[in-house]
């Protein structure tokens, strides 16, 4: 305790060090100077949050891992009632993911999930960027456009799935407009296309709005300078807009990827459960649990969890997406520090 006595700022009441200490963060500075007492205090203050996190995240996760090691050997007793005996099978549920019928379905679902994630996120990003560029210009009715572009994102996915199902049914408007007779909701590539179209329609605005927010903090002077130097629109886009908007874009893309990896409701409502060409990992896990096979359902879910986790980690490490806002915080504190010194200097000169 005594080690905390880094000279209290003048005017601080003796005996109230804990109110005084936050007032001198600049002097204390970085992590290394933090005392053990402060660390313990921080841990204590965080403990309710950690407790809640453990309850809603860690516990279900561990429960799923535990469940995935068991398998229900359902049989009928003499009276014809189901006698569910859960027996420990070790990693057998995981081993089954790569062999036989279950293996085929799992790999198919894994392929579908990856395919949908890559295609939809790519298309959304391109489309979202275009939307943001369009909205970033000053024109009449801009705010109206911005609000209306959010509508697809605001519609619940299940509802938009239903809407698109009507559009894509055999005598629906999609076939009428195209003059075609494509069976969008049957198995096949058409159903994949239907999913991609509906998903991009729904989520491109999300990327668009995030990127737009990123674009609006780019100061106008940068563009003015570029104009004076004779840079054209494309050059400005490539050398100013995209590099400066990159941190926001990366975060948006990461969010979308994690979202797309656990895609469930859209293929389920739009095409229907049990259709191989659009079955994703979440749908497979759901279907297994629906057949009351909770062990293998948990194994599917854990695999999906690991897949999502790996993608997230790789994305953050390789592309350096600034998810937690750590870099931004640093920038802000740097700015405020320089501002503070500037005002101090100004006061001094006065």
């Amino acid at each position: 305790m005594t080690t905390t006595t880094t000279a209290p700022p003048a005017g601080a009441q003796p005996g109230t060090p804990q109110t005084a200490s936050p007032a001198s963060p600049r002097k204390r500075g970085h992590r290394g100077n933090r005392t053990p007492g402060e660390g313990r205090m921080a841990a204590l203050l965080l403990s309710p949050t950690l407790l809640v996190l453990a309850l809603v995240i860690v516990y279900p996760l561990l429960a799923a891992v535990h469940q995935s090691l068991y398998r229900a050997e359902s049989g009928l007793d003499a009276d014809g009632f189901v006698a569910d005996v859960e027996s420990f099978v070790g990693l057998a549920n995981y081993a089954d993911l790569f062999v036989g019928e279950t293996g085929r379905r799992f790999l198919n679902a894994l392929g579908n999930t990856t395919f949908f994630t890559l295609t939809t996120v790519f298309l959304e990003t391109v489309l979202g960027l275009c939307l943001a560029l369009a909205m970033n210009r000053a024109f009449r009715g801009r705010s109206f456009l911005r609000a209306s572009i959010l509508v697809p994102w605001a519609v619940p996915t299940a509802v938009s799935g239903l809407l698109w199902r009507w559009i894509f049914q055999s005598d629906g408007i999609a076939n009428t407009l195209l003059g075609s007779e494509i069976l969008w909701t049957a198995e096949g590539n058409a159903s994949r296309a239907a999913i991609i179209i509906a998903e991009v329609w729904k989520t491109a605005p999300f990327i668009g709005l995030l990127v737009l927010a990123g674009m609006q903090v780019i100061p106008g002077e940068v563009y003015e300078a570029a104009k004076i130097d004779g840079a054209g629109w494309w050059r400005q886009l490539g050398s100013i807009t995209l590099p400066l908007v990159k941190p926001t874009l990366l975060v948006a893309v990461l969010f979308r990827m994690l979202d797309a990896l656990r895609m469930f409701d859209l293929p389920f409502v739009l095409i229907g459960p049990g259709k191989e060409s659009v079955e994703t990992l979440s749908m497979l896990a759901w279907d297994e649990s629906n057949q009351l096979r909770y062990g293998s359902a948990s194994a599917f879910a854990i695999m999906l969890f690991l897949y999502v986790a790996v993608v997230a980690i790789v994305f953050v490490k390789v592309l350096g997406a600034d998810v937690t806002g750590a870099k931004e915080l640093k920038l802000i504190s740097k700015k405020s520090r320089t501002k503070a010194t500037r005002t101090q200097k100004a006061e001094a000169t006065r």
Binding site: M1, Q18, M41, L44
Partner: peptide
């Protein structure tokens, strides 16, 4: 110091 300890106790 005593006051800080008291805060600790409250938190605990």
């Amino acid at each position: 110091m005593r006051q800080r300890r008291r805060t600790w106790q409250t938190l605990l």
